[in-house]
C-alpha cells in the first residue's frame, strides 16, 4: 500500500499545551481514513496540521515532520497556499460563498487566474457530476448557492474543494450538521471519490467511520492510541481504551 502522507514524531503545542504527542502514522493513497476520539483528543488539530490550517492560529508550535509525497510540508520551500490546493478541506458546516453555484465552484480557479469560459464550464459540469449534484441543480447554476439545502450546500463545498484537483481532501465532521438522507448521500459520494482522491475524515459518528472508512485511528488526550484497518478497530480492537470508547464504556 502506498502512503501519500507520512507523519513522523509530531508534537503540536497551543502555547504551552501539548495537544498532539509524538504522532507517527502513514495515510494511505486512495483510502478513506477516519480519525475518531472524544472531544479534545486532538483529532481535528491533527487534521489541520496536514494542510497547515493551524498556521492561522497564533502561538502554536509544531515539532516533528509531516511528509506529503516525500516532501516535508513545514519546510521553508513549501508554499502553504499551494499546499492547500493539493490538500483541500471541507468543514463541519457547509460554508458556500454568497455567490452563484457556478462562481462557488470556479472561485479557486479564478483566484489562480483561470478565466477561460470553456474551461470553467467544463469544471463546473464535471465536479457537479462528481458530487452527484448536477441533476439537482443544472437549471439553477447561476442562482445563489445559499438557496440550496444544507446537504446540497455541503456537496457543493465538496465540489468546490475538488474543482482545484487536490490529491487529498480533509473533512472535519462534514455531515454533523446534516439530516440522515443528506449524510448517506455524502457517504456514498466519499466512497466514489476515493477512487480519485485520498480522504481523511474526522467524525464523531462511530457508525459513519465503520460504514465508509478503510482505516481508523483512535485518539485520546493527544495520543494516537490505535491505528488499524476499520474492520479490526470495530470488530476486535487491540487496546482496551479503544474498546472502551467504541463500546461506550468511557468514563
Amino acid at each position: 500500500m502506498e502512503n501519500i502522507i507520512k507523519i513522523e514524531n509530531l508534537n503540536f503545542y497551543y502555547g504551552n499545551f501539548l495537544a498532539l504527542k509524538n504522532i507517527n502514522m502513514d495515510i494511505y493513497k486512495n483510502k478513506i481514513t477516519a480519525f475518531i476520539g472524544p472531544s479534545g483528543c486532538g483529532k481535528s488539530t491533527l487534521l489541520r496540521t496536514l494542510n497547515r490550517m493551524n498556521d492561522f492560529i497564533e502561538n502554536i508550535k509544531v515539532e516533528g515532520n509531516i511528509y506529503f509525497k516525500g516532501q516535508n510540508i513545514y519546510s521553508k520551500e513549501v508554499d502553504p497556499v499551494e499546499l492547500r490546493r493539493r490538500i483541500g478541506m471541507v468543514f463541519q458546516k457547509p460554508n458556500p460563498f454568497p455567490k452563484t453555484i457556478y462562481e462557488n465552484i470556479v472561485y479557486g480557479l479564478r483566484k489562480n487566474g483561470v478565466n477561460k469560459k470553456e474551461i470553467l464550464d467544463e469544471v463546473v459540469e464535471r465536479t457537479l457530476k462528481a458530487v452527484a449534484l448536477y441533476d439537482e441543480v443544472k437549471d439553477k447554476i447561476y442562482k445563489s448557492a445559499l438557496e440550496l439545502s444544507g446537504g446540497q450546500q455541503q456537496r457543493l463545498c465538496i465540489a468546490r474543494a475538488i474543482a482545484m484537483q487536490p490529491e487529498v481532501v480533509l473533512m472535519d465532521e462534514p455531515t454533523s450538521a446534516l439530516d440522515p438522507i443528506s449524510t448517506l448521500k455524502i457517504e456514498e459520494l466519499l466512497l466514489e471519490l476515493k477512487k480519485d482522491y485520498t480522504i481523511i475524515i474526522v467524525t464523531h459518528s462511530m457508525q459513519q467511520a465503520a460504514r465508509i472508512s478503510d482505516w481508523t485511528a483512535f485518539f485520546l488526550n493527544g495520543e494516537l492510541i490505535e491505528y488499524d484497518t476499520t474492520e479490526n478497530i470495530f470488530e476486535n480492537p487491540r487496546d482496551k481504551r479503544t474498546e472502551d470508547y467504541i463500546t461506550g464504556r468511557f468514563g
Binding site: 462511530m206 470488530e235 476486535n236 480492537p237 479503544t242 467504541i246 463500546t247
Partner: peptide
C-alpha cells in the same frame, strides 16, 4: 444499539 467490538461479538 449498533454494538461494536466485544459487545458485537
Amino acid at each position: 444499539q449498533q454494538p461494536l467490538a466485544k459487545d458485537l461479538r
